[in-house]
Design a protein around this nucleic acid. Structure first.
Length: 673
RNA sequence: GGCGGUGUAGCUCAGUUGGCAGAGCAGCGGAAUCAUAAUCCGCGGGUCGGGGGUUCAAGUCCCUCCGCCGCUACCA
């Protein structure tokens, strides 16, 4: 027996969870964990919500509530959705807990005393109006190298040079437009570079890990690891535990990774064994398995091992089976574009198992996988037909022919021997696959066995032998029932709710992997009433949900709209000069995917504008179109092309951008008030 | 434009260290009637994105081009 500590990436509590989350980090981990438990391994499955960081404060501002209220709300939604999907965490904690604060602060001090964290004083732009320090990319200004005005704090697009934000001439705050001033601030840096050599060796010893993980890391190591700031000037998060660090918090990615440990501590504290967590985290024999999406690879394969190695006592990841992404209708899941399918919406209409099956059999294990409702329907029906119907036909038959009792079998013939051998082989092959994180292949394998069950049943023709050879018929049904039980066990990690149903019919609820392939259901046992395991779905079934879904999506989206900006005076507004124009020419701009160069007829003159319209309009659509132009805006060069104004458009906040259009009577050059 | 990924049957996807191209679904033909019109048997179908190279041998390794996706930048 081995000891396993399994984690799923901590979901970020700034919104509900969608199918992509489930498919990437939670369902695969749950399948793996359920399997290990059935093998009687010592396993803990740990998770919790990640509740700090800037995006949550922004969300709170948008919703007009406190960050604490945001995370309370989403923690509960996320927790409940996962629970209903059967994700069987041993503990689902949150980073807004005193234990977590204390632990992360201890870790910080520990690394500081070991010299892995260093303090550095630096100057950073501070915006008085926003009352905050500005991250580099939120500072704009004139490039000191080439004089271009469109430079940002980290890089100048025109000349391509990497900049220090402080070198920018005429800096402006990209959030409010005012002029920020440099101010002295102090931050603490994790010396990742100190771990470079060790990491190379450590990662090198894990050649069996998935390629995506190793490749990402290789890239990082090739560039050379740098010191990374792990503190921020912010008021939402775990405070840096030093007197001189007032107003500073630990940066999320440093702190959230430690949530795995603090969640484990919380679990054992609740059990009354406050030191119990160390049996897992301090034991080098523990197999730490961390399920994540590919976006999290750097944190789990580079930063976390560095931190744990720096601390000394902790176990390092044994494997990091990172998944790729799930797309929906071929497109990336996007909250703002409304392509996300929320777990809450799905669960309001359908049971968890069909989705668990559909996502398991087409999981993004090696590359992005695509989800469509039609595909989902096919998978659901396949499962209902091949497995559900197999169980159903046996149960109905046994009730009709043998009064609902498991019949006493005659001697096993070659077909029966072959069937049971196959069942045992499936069990062993699946074990091998599951232990190597090939969940998809394992799922296919158990479906194969279900097909074999149908084949056995068909070839044995019990509906005929019932009349001619009752002994043979009894044998067929007896062994079919044994196979149904094996299928119940082997399917259990994937579709646990359905397997519970099967268990009620068979009078068996034991879930031991080694029982698969055996004769577990004794003859003479009274079988439960047959019930339909899985409902089939008709084309277009998802309409119900999508209507419902779009409702909650739009509710979700309103909160994504920016708050109304501050009031401006009438005089200020009158400074703005807008006029109607007609688009005459449209050209591409080299090296820009979204920009068009527009020549617009303004009546008395023609002016050149640059507009980010390429994703939304074709050249043909634009030519001849009447537009509203803001004409007295300060000219600026964008990607080397001068733009003398701005074309006005509405933005629905979900990726839809629509040009404003003057009425049909308006002519070029007409003013707009 | 930079970085990353990807391209295999009509569709969704497998193809381990190079060694005779696979599965499921869909399609076509048949069997069967216990069962949720479910099941079972059989068949067809691919220049493995294009081109070049290494090799006895390339879907697999190298170069190059094309397509698609994502992140990022430009969206005055």
């Amino acid at each position: 027996m081995s000891r396993y500590l399994v984690t799923s990436a901590l979901p970020y509590a700034n919104g509900p969870s969608h199918l992509g989350h489930l498919a990437g980090a939670y369902l695969p981990a749950d399948i793996y964990v359920r399997f290990l438990r059935m093998c009687e391994e010592d396993v803990l499955y740990i998770c919790g919500t990640d509740e700090h960081g800037v995006p949550i404060t922004i969300k709170a501002e948008q919703m007009g509530i406190t960050p604490r209220e945001v995370v309370d709300r989403y923690h509960e939604i996320i927790r409940s959705d996962f629970e209903r999907f059967g994700i069987s965490f041993d503990n689902f904690s949150r980073t807004e807990k005193p234990e977590h604060y204390k632990f992360t602060q201890d870790v910080f001090l520990n690394l500081l005393s070991r010299g892995y964290i260093v303090e550095k004083s630096m100057k950073q732009f501070y915006c008085d109006k926003c009352d905050r320090f500005l991250p580099d990319r939120y500072v704009g200004g004139t490039c000191p190298q080439c004089g271009s005005e469109g430079a940002r704090g980290d890089q100048c697009e025109d000349c391509g040079s990497w900049l220090d934000a402080l070198d920018l001439l005429e800096p402006i705050c990209e959030i409010c437009g005012s002029s920020p001033a440099p101010r002295e601030t102090t931050h603490w840096f994790l010396r990742l570079n100190a771990f470079q050599e060790w990491l190379e060796g450590w990662l090198g010893s894990h050649a069996g890990w998935k390629n995506n993980v190793l490749n990402y890391c290789r890239g990082w190591l090739k560039d050379g690891l740098r010191e990374r700031a792990i503190t921020r000037d912010l008021d939402w998060g775990v405070p840096v535990p030093l007197k001189e660090a007032e107003g500073k918090v630990l940066y999320v990615w440093f702190e959230a990774l430690l949530g795995y440990v603090s969640s484990t501590m919380e679990l054992f504290a609740r059990k009354g064994e406050p030191e119990g967590w160390k049996d897992y985290w301090y034991d080098p024999q523990t197999r730490l398995v961390q399920f994540i999406g590919k976006d999290n690879i750097v944190f789990h394969a580079i930063i976390e091992p560095s931190v744990f190695h720096g601390l000394g006592d902790y176990v390092l990841p044994w494997n990091i089976p990172a998944n790729e992404y799930l797309t929906v209708n071929g497109q990336k899941i996007s909250t703002s574009r409304g392509t996300a399918i929320w777990l809450t919406d799905y669960l309001a209409h359908f049971p968890p198992d069909p989705m668990r099956y559909a996502l398991a059999i087409n999981a993004p294990e090696n590359r992005d996988a695509d989800f469509t409702w039609d595909e989902f329907r096919q998978k659901n029906n396949e499962l209902a037909d091949v497995y559900g119907n197999f169980v159903n036909r046996i149960m109905k038959f046994a009730h009709k022919t043998f009064d609902g009792l498991v019949p006493e079998p005659g001697a096993a013939g070659p077909e029966e021997t072959k069937l049971m051998t196959s069942a045992a082989a499936a069990r062993d092959e699946m074990e091998e696959l599951l232990r190597n994180f090939k969940l998809k292949a394992a799922c296919l394998r158990v479906m194969d066995l279900a097909r074999e069950g149908n084949r056995y049943f068909d070839q044995s023709q019990p509906w005929k032998t019932a009349q001619t050879d009752r002994d043979k018929c009894a044998t067929t049904i007896y062994y079919s029932i044994q196979l149904a039980d094996t299928l119940r066990i082997l399917f259990a990690p994937f579709i646990p709710f359905t397997c519970e149903k099967t268990g009620r019919m068979l009078g068996s609820d034991s879930l031991l992997w080694r029982d698969a392939g055996g004769e577990n259901i004794p003859f003479g046992r009274k079988l439960g009433e047959p019930e339909i395991l899985l409902e089939k779905l008709k084309k277009g079934f998802e309409k119900v949900m999508q209507q419902e879904g779009s409702k909650s999506e739009s509710a979700e989206q309103e909160t994504d709209r920016p708050a109304i900006k501050e009031t401006v005076s009438y005089d200020d507004f009158m400074k703005i000069d807008m006029r109607a124009g007609v688009v005459k020419e449209v050209d591409d701009i080299e090296g820009a995917d979204k920009l068009f160069r527009l020549m617009v007829d303004m009546g008395d003159h023609t002016r050149q504008l640059v507009a980010g319209m390429k994703p939304f309009y074709s050249k043909e659509e634009l030519i001849g179109r009447k537009v509203v132009v803001l004409v007295n805006l300060q000219p600026i060069k964008i990607r080397g092309v001068e733009s003398n104004g701005m074309v006005l458009a509405s933005d629905d906040g979900k990726g839809g951008v629509y040009l404003l259009q003057p009425g049909s009577d308006a002519g070029p050059g007409d003013g707009i008030h």
